[in-house]
Nucleic acid binder design. Structure first.
Length: 540
RNA sequence: GGCGACGUAGCCAAGUGGUAAGGCAGGGGUCUGCAAAACCCCCAUUCGUCGGUUCGAUUCCGACCGUCGCCUCCA
């Protein structure tokens, strides 16, 4: 089965054939680092992260490059406002960007060049264009002569007149054509600069991507990606520069992600609806944000609302619970023996799993339709849940089938969608909430002179590395630094869950419910299943 | 004005020339001490409007209405 992609350049679907069989070179335009990134940019970055992961999953050897624009007017401006050095300012926000992407589960690029580190390559490209009469010098810098490139406008489907008509009045008088754009800008006082044949200055915006692609991938890259708003002028200009210089197609496939709206409107700082990645990841689980981004095809607009995120929290939970149920049922009765599958239902589950994998691939192969692929996953989850439900006493075959199903789901969720990046909640906050539950529990037990339970709580906590110091009214505590907070959390939940089970066995429903409520308040949701009581964090 | 995208149930959303995936929400039921989870059943004769092509269109074409984006070095 071939992968087909929508190519912005041809405005139609094309079979995806990389330059070198089995290898994919992919370049995605990165951020300008003058502030925290917004969730609109993150949509693009998550989209192409998942596309990159999928191509890898499909067996391609993918090299993924993404630039960081750390030289830019906006950075200079912002640094000046804050009385900071422009490059240092940019470096700070480049780090924040990396942190944001990590929090969103975006894999780091294989190559992450910065504009400030690519100046020599940009300069030689400019020189090449000058030598070819495709660029000229003015008093303010060097400009690319759009007129020198016959195919200008082919990506964004604009004629020369269209662009001229749209150009703002007040353009640089020295420019030969309003469409011409800066390759090199002479530095004004207080601006960062590099030496060049055209005087001290800095590169224009578009030239960095051309220079970087050529540096790392040669004249032609397989996939050049970015947000839809980059089609014009950024990518159009990249094509003009690059193809003029190399006479080769700059990219085989141009992929563009549609914009993200917030409450039905374009998101913008001036519109007052700007949401940073930092805010979003602090507020919502990564899986939910990623699923939200993937819930609509990447070339369609998507509206960010609290309701939409809430839906995707539920979606993520559904998939995670299915996986947990499969794992629990598969593991509940000891390790699987090595025997031939003879159980009809088990054979069917394996077949369903295989079919789901194929249908998922068929969906996603068609221009990365993850929204459709998710539909396949949910149907699969439903079938798997049903199997678990119907096999209260799973045979050896059934357990193996469930393990197969779980492996599939885990693979897609973890490696392709990137929605199983581990727990992201704040473990120390969770731990203090849970310790409070335990301490209260012990306090109540002592009040009623239930010394057995009180001591048991203290001993269980102690065994988990949590030392209690009894005070007059409350108890202080500290965690052994050698013990992981998440592990300590689990220990407390297990303890409380065990006490609840005992209470239920004594049919002390009030006690059992109180324990369940206490855990719920601490952010732990209990799930009573046939295979015992499971639990999960309700804060993601 | 030029270029372009989108309009599918209460909400989100996939999709196809042959009569509508999935998720969320909602209703009923099973299970459960109760709940949650899971499971079962129900929930668009209809895909912005009007025409056209066709045996047949939500899917192709045209017009219109509506929403939105780019044309401003915002990914």
């Amino acid at each position: 089965m071939a992968i087909r992609v929508h190519n912005t350049l041809t405005r139609r679907m094309e079979e995806f054939v990389p330059l070198t069989p089995g290898k994919v070179n992919m370049y995605c335009c990165g951020p300008t680092v003058y502030d925290y990134q917004g969730i609109h940019n993150a949509r693009t970055f998550v989209t192409f992260d998942v596309i990159r992961r999928y191509l890898t999953h499909r067996g391609f050897d993918v090299t993924f490059a993404q630039n960081v624009t750390d030289i830019d007017d906006k950075i200079i401006e912002r640094a000046k406002e804050n009385d900071a050095d422009a490059l240092e300012w940019a470096a700070t926000y480049a780090d924040e960007y990396a942190a944001d992407m990590a929090a969103l589960g975006v894999l780091p690029p294989d190559i992450a060049p910065r504009a400030s580190e690519t100046v020599p390559e940009m300069q030689s490209l400019i020189t090449q264009l000058m030598d070819g009469d495709a660029a000229y010098e003015t008093s303010s810098g060097v400009y690319y002569s759009v007129d020198s490139f016959d195919e200008y406008g082919k990506l964004s489907n604009r004629s020369a007149d269209d662009v001229r008509a749209g150009a703002r009045i007040g353009v640089d008088e020295e420019k030969r054509d309003p469409r011409d754009f800066a390759l090199w800008k002479r530095a004004k006082i207080g601006e960062p600069w590099w030496e060049s044949p055209w005087g001290r200055g800095r590169p224009g915006w578009h030239i960095e991507c051309s220079a970087m692609v050529m540096k790392y991938f040669g004249a032609t890259v397989d996939i050049h990606a970015g947000g839809a708003d980059l089609v014009f002028p950024h990518h159009e200009n990249e094509i003009a520069q690059s193809e003029k210089a190399t006479s080769a197609p700059f990219a085989r496939y141009w992929l563009h992600g549609a914009l993200l709206r917030v409450g039905g409107e374009k998101m913008g700082k001036s519109l007052g609806n700007f949401i940073t990645v930092r805010d979003a990841t602090a507020q919502y689980p990564t899986e939910a944000i990623r699923l939200f981004y993937l819930s609509t095809h990447y070339r369609k607009p998507l509206d960010y609302t609290p309701e939409a995120i809430a839906e995707n929290i539920a979606s993520a939970r559904r998939l995670n619970r299915c996986l947990a149920a499969l794992r629990a049922a598969a593991d509940a009765h000891g390790p699987a023996a090595d025997e031939v599958l003879g159980d009809g239902a088990a054979i069917e589950l394996v077949a369903t799993t295989r079919a789901a994998a194929e249908r998922f691939a068929a969906m996603v192969d068609e221009d990365f339709n993850f929204a459709g692929g998710l539909g396949v996953l949910f149907e699969f989850a439903h079938a798997a849940n049903r199997f678990v439900d119907e096999n209260a006493e799973p045979t050896e075959d059934a357990r193996r089938a469930m393990a197969t199903a779980a492996a599939f789901l885990e693979d897609v969720m973890g490696n392709v969608l990137g929605i199983r990046g581990g727990e992201r909640g704040d473990d120390s906050a969770r731990l203090s909430r849970l310790v409070r539950v335990a301490v209260n529990l012990r306090h109540d037990a002592r009040e009623t002179k239930d010394w057995g339970t009180a001591d048991r709580v203290r001993d269980a906590l102690g065994a988990s590395g949590i030392a209690l110091q009894d005070g007059r009214d409350a108890s202080g505590w500290e965690l052994d630094p050698a013990v992981d907070e998440a592990v300590a959390c689990s220990a407390i939940v297990e303890l409380v869950a065990a006490l609840r089970i005992e209470a239920r066995e004594r049919t002390e429903w009030d006690t059992a419910d109180a324990l369940r409520d206490a855990l719920a308040e601490a952010g732990v949701q209990l799930l009573d299943t046939r295979d015992g009581t499971q639990w999960e964090w309700s804060d993601g």
